[in-house]
């Protein structure tokens, strides 16, 4: 076992891990941050997306030891300081961008990464960016709509229902 130290959602986090411990396992099992989900084992579904040093990564395809010293953000750290939903989270609720909720943490984290790089994405850019995030419930309609809305764009012309 090796000790790993990182900052998670602004707080110091450390624990003993094996070489093979994945960042997702460290967050879920060692830190109790079970909002990060694991939905596949081939690095495709994206339920595990977190930010490492400001960049979206698949935490099930990164060793915990690779994140030693890094700043990690997870879904648990996304709400506003007063606990209210942030703009992206609120848009997901407003536009019914989630159903079972399992892919949702990864979707929100990917959406945050997208809007950081591209504050006003087109529909096509949103859909392309979500290649690595699979949702089985929503058909993506309301996810794409929510992300466009979170970017401040008018979505009233998009089929309401």
């Amino acid at each position: 076992m090796t000790q790993v130290n990182m900052t998670v959602n602004g707080k110091a986090a450390s624990g003993d891990v094996e070489g093979r411990t994945l960042l997702a396992q460290f967050l879920r099992d060692s830190q109790g941050l079970t909002g990060t989900h694991v939905g596949c084992d081939t690095s495709q579904c994206g339920a595990c997306v977190v930010h490492v040093d400001g960049k979206a990564v698949k935490s099930c395809t990164m060793l915990a030891l690779e994140a030693d010293g890094a700043e990690v953000s997870t879904i648990e750290g996304q709400a506003n300081a007063d606990g209210s939903l942030n703009v992206i989270q609120q848009a997901f609720q407003d536009h019914h961008g989630l159903q079972c909720g399992f892919c949702t943490p990864g979707m929100v984290m990917s959406a945050a990464a997208l809007l950081k790089d591209n504050p006003k994405p087109t529909e096509t850019e949103v859909r392309d960016y979500l290649e690595g995030n699979i949702c089985r419930c929503t058909g993506y309609h309301n996810i794409v709509k929510a992300i466009l809305a979170a970017s401040g764009q008018d979505v009233s012309a998009i089929a309401a229902e």
């Binding site: 909002g35 648990e76 996304q78 997901f92 609720q93 019914h96 079972c100 909720g101």
Partner: peptide, 21 residues
């Protein structure tokens, strides 16, 4: 009506079976 369950799912506070230890 907006979904009340969304609050926990959007904040990582859901309780899925794999979250039970």
């Amino acid at each position: 009506s907006k979904r009340r369950e969304d609050i926990r799912f959007l904040t990582g506070a859901g309780n899925y079976t794999d979250d039970i230890n």
